[in-house]
Amino acid sequence: MFKLAYLALDKVNQGIIILDKDLKIVFWNAWLEQYTGKSQEETIGQKLPKLFPDLSRKPCLDAFQGALFHRQSRFLSGALHHCFIAPVGEIRKDVRQNLLVEPLDYDDEKYILLQISDLTGHYSRVKQLKHMLKEIDSEYEQVRAAAKINRFKAFHDALTGLPNRYLFYDRLDNAISMAQRNKEMLAVVFLDLDGFKEVNDSYGHEAGDLLLQAVADRLRELLRESDTLARLGGDEFLLIFPQIKSEADAATIAKKILTALAHPFMFWGWELYLTASIGISLYPKDANDSRNLINKADLAMYQVKNSGKNDYHFYHSVT
């Protein structure tokens, strides 16, 4: 039976070493003979740390001491220690081995059982896997960043960076719900620049684009945090002013806009003067849904266009 157990240890697919209390080898299995190129005859009776200097490092000696004197089992990982027993004629780089150190008692004598497994192939697969995971992570980040940009583009005007029609509708719906809940008034302002087509025709589209950006900047400066400014397209802008107290508040805002645009726009050495026609509708007086509020502000704006431009009108004055 003893012989059978001995044979079995020889057949085990990992390195098995038994050391006595002086760290001399008393058992060296066949796997190790093949792995290290050192036969039983060469190793039995030899001091293991002398034969394999990697095993004379402090963590290993600590583990041997722990097993002999404190009956402690210790696991030493290839991740931290790399290699304990150098393989013969090794051409693989970065050999990784796990080592398990356990106490063994037999006939009142203390021994140490060492089990060594080679995980080099496993580690290189893990390395590849880690590399792959890193690539996937970075691709995922790129996709996420692109999605964020696309989301922004889908709801913003490319020229001015202002919210577009879709985002404006969404914001207006929210503002209406809020106003309904809090029983507040809000104003929708439709703004169309006067004479913008002439600027485009005389100075070119590039100048027209610059002018639209400059107008957007000036309008932005007039806004509170809760207000919304959007570009509908061409030279049309829409604004939401929530939480206003009276019609007079909306009139003040309209006057401020006209004053802000009255200053000349300077670029390429030219001085351009611009005016705007503004139509205003009020929630809940004129309508209580976004489509009608915008339509009525639009109608009011046309009223201004037809009566000399550079002014503002409330929807009620149309009828």
């Binding site: 404190h70 402690q72 696991f75 990982s77 931290l80 496993h122 580690y123 893990v126 896997l129 995971l133």
Partner: peptide, 23 residues
């Protein structure tokens, strides 16, 4: 993501600490 090599490191660390405390 924990790979089994990460578990090996934790196994060794906990082995050392728990052995020290219990020992």
């Amino acid at each position: 993501r924990f790979l089994d090599t990460d578990f090996d490191v934790l196994k060794e660390i906990s082995n050392l600490i728990l052995n020290a405390v219990i020992g």
